[in-house]
């Protein structure tokens, strides 16, 4: 008996929803970034599970691409957070509204 791919994809769906909850509910910019990481990882799990299902490597290649993109996103996101903190501002995503027209 082995675990079917359904379970992996189901776990990925649950993790993605938890990450979305973090992005929607939390106000701290750092925690929002952490939640985005959870969502990207959930997507990766689905890619990897389907890659195993078909015994092809395409899904794994894209999982690695997603990892690189996630790392870039963290660098830029944390850079913005640090730059904001230099402006003596709270890292509250509800207060950061300079770009809304």
């Amino acid at each position: 008996m082995s675990v079917a791919v359904d379970w992996y994809v189901g776990l990925s769906a649950v993790l993605f929803s938890i990450g979305a909850a973090g992005v929607l509910l939390r106000r701290n910019a750092l925690v929002v970034l952490l939640s985005i990481e959870i969502m990207l990882n959930a997507g990766n799990l689905a890619l990897v599970a389907f890659s195993r299902t078909h015994a092809q490597h395409d899904g794994q290649v894209f999982a690695i691409v997603v990892m690189a993109i996630a790392a870039s996103e963290v660098v830029v996101g944390l850079g913005i957070v640090v730059a904001l903190s230099h402006m003596r501002r709270e890292l509250d995503t509800d207060e950061l509204a300079e770009l809304h027209g």
Binding site: A4, S17, A20, L24
Partner: peptide, 26 residues
């Protein structure tokens, strides 16, 4: 926000349950 997230989770899990995924390749 909670409602939206719950709707998302229910939709995703329902899709996974109803979908007919292929078995793991040998």
């Amino acid at each position: 926000a909670l409602l939206g997230v719950l709707a998302l989770m229910v939709t995703l899990v329902a899709v996974v349950i109803t979908a007919d995924f292929p078995k793991l390749a040998e």
